[in-house]
Design a protein around this nucleic acid. Structure first.
Lengths: 113, 113
DNA sequence: AATTTAAATAACCATTTGGTTATTTAGACA
DNA sequence: TGTCTAAATAACCAAATGGTTATTTAAATT
């Protein structure tokens, strides 16, 4: 039982949903997400940790950066992420985020200052 | 967007999940749920309100009692409740609750004191 | 009309949540 | 080796959560 409520909790926040909708498109690093959601880097780190603990995402080192990506670890995660991928695709906030994502450039956002 | 995170929030609590797994079996009144989950009547009322606002359940008057029952109001609710119905059917807590449900008798639990 | 009973609401409290700024950690490269 | 830089962690805070007890509301019965 414990596991399932952890997964639902991971999905029960607008910013975490926004993160997941972004990760549907591609791997992303912390600073890109912080830029797009317009919250601090530690806030994103904490949210990612919560999503990761729930078994929805994983991460890998990539040079300077840590890439986070969708990686469902069990049936709960698999089914819920699949559902989520069918939802919010016409949502205003999500689409604004995706617009911002197109312009986002890791090298400019993070390193250069 | 707002709607979806409200639905996930409604599912993001063990006691609310337990309530929904019970309502999968049959309509129930507040005092039956309070007895089975072993929390106070107002606690159940609050949880039910949260689940109802998320569009997962509805209620109807039945004599002295108010019956609550599964009633998904939109696609979010429909799909998530369907998933939930396939999960936790071997869960210890859920099965204990269902055992207790078999013995639960509205007339004895509520009215008689 | 008065009484009884289930459920809702109010008031309260401890814990959790989700953000912030400041600091530490660890990988990449000069 | 020493210096950058991205990400993690620590410390903090206001708001939300989920429970409690006490009280109010509203439906059903006498």
């Amino acid at each position: 039982m414990k596991d399932l409520d952890v997964v639902f909790k991971a999905l029960a926040d607008i910013n975490r949903i926004r993160i997941l909708k972004l990760l549907e498109k591609r791997k992303m690093c912390v600073c890109e997400l912080a830029y797009i959601l317009d919250v601090s880097q530690p806030a994103i780190s904490k949210q990612l940790k919560k999503i990761a603990r729930a078994g929805l995402i994983d991460s890998e080192q990539d040079g300077f950066w840590t890439n986070y990506f969708i990686k469902p670890k069990d049936d709960y995660a698999k089914k819920l992420l699949k559902l989520l991928s069918t939802w919010l695709n016409a949502d205003a906030i999500v689409n604004d985020d995706l617009e911002k994502l197109k312009k986002a450039n890791r090298e400019n956002l993070c390193c250069k200052k």
